[in-house]
Simulated scan of single mutants.
Amino acid sequence: MSHSDDGTPDAPSNAAAFEVVVVGAGPAGLSAALNLARARRRTLLVDSNRPRNAATLHSHGFITRDGTSPLELRRLAREEFEGYPGATFHAGLVESIERADGGFVLTARGVRGSADLSATARTVIVATGLVESLPCIPSIRAWYGTDLHSCIECDGYEKADEALALIGESDDLAERALIVSQWSDDLIVFTNGSTAISPRDEAGLAARGIRVERRGIVDVVGEQGRMTGVLLADGETIARAAGFVRPDWSPAIGFLDGLGIALDGEGLIAVDAAGRSSVPGLYAAGDSTAPGPGQLIVAAGQGAQVAAVLNRDLLGSLAVEPSLAVEPSLD
């Protein structure tokens, strides 16, 4: 790609031009893209089809769609988006976004048979969410999305009154245990040999009937397609029917490395209350910006809010230059 004298890239001559590029077709990105298409903005939605919730069979808490597959929600939302004039979807993995004259240049590698893409846009919304790493337990993915889940608010109701495990090594484990206990009074927290829970927090959990198990975990075991327990390093298996796991999360934003965008203490995109980042014209929504409940409806709401702000920003200001202002009549 050629660059101008000031170092910013020139727009490729074959690049498609848009007012907005939305990167990521999760609930935040789909909601933002739909609302921008309805605002008659030329909108490009780019997604690599690698959703974090691909293992989840049912999503919950999304009004009118409670229990629907997350993949079905994605399909329906994309179909709605593409039904509007000016709406374009591209299956691709975004590799870079750079500043260009008056906006940005995006390059994406095509996936699922799509061609590679170059596009220019006045503005960008990043809604790529998080990449999760589960604890290093051999069979944990075999139960993930069915008997084990990461979002307590999403799946707690379905695990009510079961013998539950909470597995993790993070410093918010005690807080998460309190939330899980709302659905079951038979809960054991497994720290897998870590110091994730302090003695003080352990005492507080014990007062609520929540046991902390500090021994290392060998595996999560089961039979006939159902989880039955947690096998510990000393050979004991503690019976558990289901539970929750606390992954490590990191943002999927490597394609922004060349922009010098400000990040917060968690490595997420720092934004103001309206979703504006430190880079003018670049916005972010959903889990790329701040930790919180991992519910689809929350992310969708954030996407709609950022879309509304971006649309207003594109309209510009109504301020009138003083030299052109009309003096009020004294008559």
Rank of each mutant, 00 (worst) to 15 (best):
V23C: 11
L30F: 07
V21N: 02
S48L: 10
D10Y: 01
L30T: 14
L36K: 00
L44G: 14
D10N: 03
D66W: 02
A17L: 01
V21M: 06
N35Q: 07
A39H: 06
R65L: 15
R38Y: 05
A28N: 04
L44C: 12
A25S: 15
R50W: 13
T56C: 13
A55R: 04
V46P: 12
V23Y: 00
T56S: 15
G26A: 09
A39V: 08
V20C: 14
S59W: 00
R52N: 10
G7F: 09
P9I: 11
A15C: 03
A25Y: 12
T64F: 10
L57W: 03
P12E: 05
I63K: 14
V46Q: 01
A39Y: 12
H58E: 09
H58V: 01
N35A: 12
R65M: 08
S59Y: 00
G67M: 00
V46F: 06
A25N: 02
N53M: 12
D10E: 12
G7K: 00
A32I: 08
A33L: 04
G26L: 01
P27S: 04
T8V: 07
S13Q: 12
R52M: 06
R52S: 14
H60V: 13
A39R: 03
G61N: 08
A25G: 13
F18P: 14
A16N: 14
A55G: 06
